[in-house]
Design a protein around this nucleic acid. Structure first.
Lengths: 145, 145
DNA sequence: CAAATGTAGGTGCGTGCGCACACACATTCC
DNA sequence: GGAATGTGTGTGCGCACGCACCTACATTTG
């Protein structure tokens, strides 16, 4: 049975390899924002109170938890986030978006979204995009526990 | 218009980040093969004459062309490929699978395919997998020229 | 309360990776 | 044929990244 066709996975690998550098460079050229920074800013932007602990960031963002530490350092040095203490747990530290961080993200987002549209979504039908999102979503859901 | 939904792209990024380390480690644990090596072996295995020039490898494999040089070195040191001269073009060099390389690839392939099935394909219907493959295939096709 | 265990975060270190360049050869143009 | 341009490979270098470990604090257990 199954005799699984790895074509979907192979295509995913290739698309990732092909598009990530392109989107990253577009983002850097237009806004001097590495994709990693954008990812972290995005997660913070959508978080309640515009802030998350580093552990939460590591779980939700694409970058690894150990990397989050350094990225948040860089973002703080650039004035886009601030580190805030957590009164509930003194081990923990929040990364919170600054006003400059929000502005920077809002400015950069259209570039990124246009890039995704141009290089990715526009190559398929809306139905296909929805299927891709839901199928991959199920793959992710299976990894939670 | 469009108001593109980046959900499909976001899911792709996450699935890649989540699965690549897992598949890589499974491959290394079972066969001491890094995913990069496997990728190169795979392309050579399916190439006419079981060999490709380094430039062709760089184009067809997921790894960058500059990386190919070193990976082929490592594979050659491990006895899985040999470098062959190209009489037609003395700049060029072939990487050719050895018998040991073919055996190693054939042995490792089931592990990799089972991993893809287990972590990826089994989470969606066959129809969805086909749609993912074809939609992503169109994205890749758009990047050829 | 003390000890033991668990969890959040930071960091030294090794490494995989791509860029930019260098070199050799091929090809084209005069 | 010789110069100029293009193409195929190799490589020094720097950087981003994750792992393993450490410290600080929290929580649980007796």
């Amino acid at each position: 049975m199954t005799d699984t066709d790895p074509a979907a996975w192979a295509a995913l690998m290739r698309v990732h390899a092909a598009l990530v550098p392109v989107l990253d460079q577009e983002l850097q050229a237009a806004h001097n924002l590495p994709l990693t920074w954008y990812d972290v800013l995005l997660e913070l932007y959508h978080a309640p109170g515009r802030r998350l602990t580093l552990g939460e960031l590591g779980r939700v963002a694409v970058v690894s938890r150990s990397r989050v530490s350094r990225v948040v350092d860089e973002l703080a040095r650039a004035g886009l986030v601030t580190r805030e203490a957590n009164p509930q747990d003194r081990r923990s530290a929040y990364a919170a978006l600054t006003e400059a961080g929000k502005r920077r993200f809002r400015t950069a987002a259209p570039t990124y979204l246009r890039g995704i549209e141009k290089h990715f979504t526009s190559r398929m039908t809306a139905r296909e995009a929805a299927t891709v999102a839901s199928a991959l979503g199920k793959v992710l859901a299976a990894r939670e526990p």
